[in-house]
Design a protein around this nucleic acid. Structure first.
Lengths: 225, 225
DNA sequence: ACTTTAGCGGAACGGATCATTCCGTTCAAG
DNA sequence: CTTGAACGGAATGATCCGTTCCGCTAAAGT
């Protein structure tokens, strides 16, 4: 019953805990499926939809909040990588892998377009991509990154790697690195080619996608994977 | 009014022409958006929905037909590549690029899972992937392809490259090759690294995705791009 | 020339999915 | 013991979409 695990006890504390739970749930759910219904978020958070609407005026506001949160995470990752002034390549690679691992790209670009971006959001986005461009330029100037790579290639690379989804989150992350690694190898100027990490998808994993649509009605509609 | 442009004149000829138009439209529409409504196909084909239901019992049958068609195209591409017995690497690369260019992957894996696969479809799929595996193995045996690449990596690579979408079909194809090329370079055993083809996405292209949802109601719902 | 009828376009129907609202309940605070 | 903030989840209303239905057109048949 130790409700004091985080925060205090009592009604107010529960509300505070729910704040977090809802935001975390929303992030998890919308990363899994950007078109998920609001009810899926409530279910994942273990609350009713009412609790959700108490905090956000509507779905769009929740999405905006999430997107903003994603951009801040992106910025944090970029700044952290930028701090490594010594090794420009390592900074670049750490940055790219960090963005992939935190799945932050799904929260920004994939969610954008589903709502009207606020000016603040645009500013954040501009800062974020400027930061990314600096990391990339530094690596290029240092001769570690091929000169024909442009800053605007980055969102594309994030897109394609993020498109890889198979099994649970852990397996997905492993597979993403499996294909990100050779790509980074190729983009690096005259660097050694490293072996592909993780194991290739098994036959079961590949076949999983040929499964007919779930006729089940047990729970809310799950994303199609 | 020259209806004889292809086929004959008259009612029967129109029907025959519509057969093609509908199938072509369906392919185009579902490649663009695998969840597109039936009405979008009819609109693209320039016919009413009635014409569609005269030929297919329902959406699922159309989808199955399309998927089957896609698998056959895939097989044809693979067999054509397999014919180049001399150059295993060129065969492999031609094959991969061919699959990407014909966007056949979207028709198979992306559509599967939306309907119950028939035994025939399963057979076709098995043949197709066996063919692909042969091409890949041959390149590997010849020492042109890195040994740590597995046959099951192929669908993943198709997935990630197919996920790249920007602008019209032509631009999309160009960008796909832009990122496929370094990937192939890295997967090739000790090969030269070629420059990235095409130009990176422009700022406008990148920004396009931040556009708010179309409030327009002019036409049917277009895919969100 | 007249009748059939295949094939067509698209309105109308019915089911399903959501975002959002509403209301009865609970429980910490006073 | 009363109060009301916060909650859960059913009810509501709108939208979307697959499918059906029907009146119309014009090619084919007589």
């Amino acid at each position: 019953m130790e409700t004091r695990t985080s925060g205090g006890r009592g009604r107010a504390a529960e509300a505070a805990r729910n704040d977090r739970a809802i935001l975390d749930a929303a992030r998890a759910v919308f990363i899994r499926d950007p078109e998920a219904p609001i009810a899926a978020v409530a279910e994942e958070a273990g609350v009713g939809v009412g609790a959700l609407y108490r905090r956000y005026a509507g779905k769009e506001e929740l999405l905006r909040t999430l997107c903003e949160d994603g951009l801040r995470r992106f910025t944090a990752i970029a700044e952290s990588a930028l701090a490594r002034q010594d090794a420009p390549w390592e900074a670049f690679e750490t940055f790219v892998r960090g963005v992939i691992d935190s799945d932050v790209h799904s929260l920004t670009v994939h969610l954008a377009g589903t709502f009207a971006p606020t000016p603040e959001l645009r500013t954040l986005a501009a800062q974020a991509s400027a930061l990314a461009a600096r990391i990339l330029d530094r690596a290029k100037t240092a001769g570690a990154l091929r000169p024909d790579v442009a800053a605007n290639d980055l969102p594309m690379i994030f897109d394609q790697i993020t498109a890889i989804r198979l099994g649970d989150a852990e397996r997905t992350a492993a597979l993403r690195h499996r294909y990100l690694t050779p790509l980074l190898d190729a983009l690096r100027a005259g660097a050694p080619t490293r072996p592909l990490p993780a194991s290739p998808p098994s036959d079961e994993e590949v076949g999983e996608r040929w499964r007919p649509p779930e006729p089940a009605r047990s729970s809310r509609n799950r994303p199609r994977r």
